[in-house]
């Protein structure tokens, strides 16, 4: 468990893929109970994290402006002012 990254830091794709793999492993491998419980605990966290990302995440929006010399600046994009 210690080698697994914190669920909260995962992107949707990482969490979703890990969850798919994990369920697959639970279903195919004849795992000891301890391992099953560990996977179940992590799987529950992963599923909740995915659902939170879908339901609660706020779209992160920024603006990239390139100057003629090839430099680029990134700034927040204010939709309200438009």
């Amino acid at each position: 468990m210690n080698d697994m990254p914190d669920v909260e830091t995962l992107s949707f794709e990482e969490a979703f893929r890990e969850l798919e793999d994990l369920v697959e492993r639970m279903e195919t491998g004849n795992l000891p109970l301890e391992e099953t419980i560990r996977l179940f605990e992590r799987g529950s966290l992963l599923a909740r994290h995915c659902q939170n990302l879908l339901d609660k995440a706020e779209l992160k929006l920024q603006q990239l402006t390139a100057s003629p010399d090839g430099e680029a600046t990134v700034a927040p994009f204010d939709e309200g002012s438009r």
Partner: peptide
């Protein structure tokens, strides 16, 4: 265009379908 309906439409869809994404506008 930063002022067009196209941008508004796109942002609306992203928020509705998959809000956990980052978006960068190059106006």
């Amino acid at each position: 265009s930063p002022d067009g309906a196209a941008l508004r439409d796109i942002l609306h869809v992203l928020r509705r379908r998959f809000p956990c994404v980052a978006a960068t506008l190059a106006p």
